[in-house]
Amino acid sequence: MPPAFEYIDPNLPAPLRAALAQALSAPPQRVQRVEGGGEALWLKQKEDSLSLWWRLLKGNSRRAFEADRLALKDLAKQDLPVPAIRAEGRDFFATTEIGTPVAHFLRGSQSAAELAPALEAAGRALGAFHSAGVVHGRPKLRDICWDGHQARLIDFERYRRGESSRKLMAQDMLVLLHSLFSLRPDGAEEAGIVLKAWLATAPEGLSGALVQRAKALAWLRPASRLALKRRAGSSEMIAMPITLDWILETLR
């Protein structure tokens, strides 16, 4: 049965349109890359076959899927840096490929100076969202893509229209910095580049909100420090005290 498109970009090349239709005819995957005609899309489909355990762990998958779709439409109208929806149907949407996740670059051997353009772009992009009064909810560096010129954000499954505050904006930046230190524990210079770009773009006063948020999470330090001392636990746990200490030291 052919897929039911509710919208498809008339400028989509015929080979890419055919590749998309073929992908939609196969068993659904949550996210997959579709290529054809020299272009590529990222196809996202609703998850219906989750086990009870995964439904409990991940929450309402339909709500998350629709939140992501709603965000992309809302934010595009505000000219914020998000990928364009090129095709959609009831249980899927496909977006323009917008580059490489910034996290990918931090896993390599590039220096902070070499990474600076991507890191600055990531900080500015998040700052643009906050200047518009929009909170991402979980802007890890894997959720910020850079094409060599511009950084754009993806994965808005926690998006809630109109839900914004300085506390939530500070939480966004804390999540971003934590994801950076999870990938590069000695990345103080890299973190400084992101923070400077964010502060230059975001509303005034967010540096104080970020300090307050870091202080509020001080209760996480003991377990995290133990993991850091023993080199045990996940990279995310090990990165937590590094992130909190860096914020408080940098913005004191």
Rank of each mutant, 00 (worst) to 15 (best):
R30Q: 05
L248D: 08
H136A: 12
Q78E: 12
S234E: 09
T100Y: 00
K46F: 13
Q45L: 10
T201N: 07
S224D: 03
E39N: 07
D68R: 03
M173Y: 08
E6Y: 04
L168Q: 12
E6N: 03
G108Y: 05
A122M: 09
N11S: 08
A116N: 09
Q150V: 04
S164L: 06
A23M: 13
L75E: 02
Q22N: 12
L153D: 02
P241M: 11
I98L: 10
R124Q: 05
R252Q: 15
S235W: 04
L16G: 06
L12K: 01
L141T: 06
M237A: 12
G36L: 10
G137C: 12
R90D: 13
V134H: 03
A191P: 11
E114K: 14
D68Y: 11
D79Q: 15
G123H: 09
E204A: 13
G36P: 03
H178W: 13
P3Q: 01
K77I: 07
Q29L: 15
I247K: 12
E249I: 01
R30W: 02
R160M: 04
A112K: 09
A128F: 00
L50E: 14
V31S: 11
I193C: 09
R86S: 05
V134K: 01
W54T: 15
D172T: 10
V31F: 01
S61C: 14
Q32D: 08
R231Y: 05
R90I: 09
S51E: 15
R124G: 03
G108P: 03
G137P: 05
Q32M: 14
A26F: 00
S165E: 15
E88K: 04
E66G: 03
S179C: 08
G127V: 02
A4V: 12
L56D: 07
E236I: 04
I144N: 06
V31E: 08
L176C: 07
G36A: 13
A209H: 13
A116G: 07
G192T: 09
L220D: 11
V211S: 14
G108D: 07
R161V: 11
A84H: 15
A188Y: 07
D245W: 01
G38M: 09
E47R: 15
M173H: 10
P139K: 01
D74Q: 06
A40T: 10
K140H: 12
R142C: 08
L12I: 02
S109Q: 14
E157K: 00
D155C: 04
P81A: 03
W146K: 02
R17S: 04
L180R: 13
A94F: 00
K167W: 15
P83K: 04
R62L: 14
S182F: 11
G59W: 12
Q45G: 09
A202R: 06
K196C: 09
L50I: 14
A200I: 03
S224W: 01
K73S: 10
I242F: 05
R63K: 15
L106K: 07
W42Q: 05
P3M: 10
S25L: 04
W219S: 10
